[in-house]
Design a protein around this nucleic acid. Structure first.
Length: 229
DNA sequence: CCCTGATTCGC
DNA sequence: GCGAATCAGG
């Protein structure tokens, strides 16, 4: 597979929607998770909260000398120049713990040496909209209407259920409900190793065939029959 | 173990 | 440019 313009668009959209690289990968198909990540980086899409990127401590030597430098001879250049330890990157979090009993209008503290620039206090209203003060209107708000290439919301009934997108090789794919119904989803249990279903549903799916003539209630099947749950 | 994203580096 | 291999945190 190659990165056609269309596939790149999908990648961008999904990446920006916060889907994981894995999800994106098997959604696009034909590419690996790594390919997706690699492409994303090359595209300049960058990092959403990465689990492994939290700390930026420049301590210690190179973290991953992938190439174990070919046998360094003793003639190794004497290294004495220690790179400047880089002054602490002045981070200005200014959490501004609003003192409960201190009305903001109170003493302006005339001699306050460093009245840390009070961070804009914004709040999030219902629907995720940012509330802003009257004077806060920031003109250029280009919320770049990202084209939804995929349904934005799965419908509330599905929330918390195992949807098609959640299926992996180790998730039970036994359908719950009927396809097309609003609450149709999948079992989602851990799979019975080597099977597409969990143990319970393997029991339903795989039943030894008894000799002909033996009257038995037909085994409940995933589809077709009356509701199976 | 599983997952995640980041990075490196041979192709 | 691509992506497997590897690293590293959760």
């Amino acid at each position: 597979m190659s990165w056609t313009e269309e596939r790149i668009d999908q990648l961008k959209a999904m990446w920006e929607r916060g889907l994981t690289a894995s999800q994106i990968a098997d959604e696009l198909g034909g590419v690996s998770r790594n390919a997706v990540i690699g492409k994303a980086h090359r595209l300049g899409l960058q990092s959403r909260p990465s689990p492994v990127k939290a700390n930026e401590t420049p301590k210690k030597a190179a973290p991953a000398p992938r190439k174990p430098a070919p046998v360094a001879t003793e003639a190794e250049t004497p290294r004495a120049a220690a790179p400047a330890p880089a002054a602490a990157p002045v981070r200005a979090p200014a959490p501004a713990p609003a003192a409960p009993s201190a009305p903001a209008s109170a003493a302006p503290a005339e001699d306050a040496p460093a009245p840390a620039p009070q961070p804009r206090i914004i709040s999030v209203g219902p629907g995720g909209f940012l509330r802003q003060g009257p004077g806060d209107q920031q003109a250029p708000i280009p919320p770049a209407p990202p084209r939804r290439l995929v349904p934005a919301k799965p419908s509330p009934e599905i929330a918390g259920k195992t949807s098609l997108l959640d299926l992996t090789e180790r998730i039970c794919k036994w359908p719950m409900g009927h396809p097309g119904e609003p609450d149709f989803h999948f079992c989602g249990e851990a799979v019975n190793p080597g099977f597409p279903y969990c143990v319970e549903h393997c029991g339903r799916a795989y039943q030894a065939q008894l000799p002909r003539g033996t009257r038995r209630p037909p085994p409940p099947l995933p589809f077709g029959g009356p509701r199976v749950r």
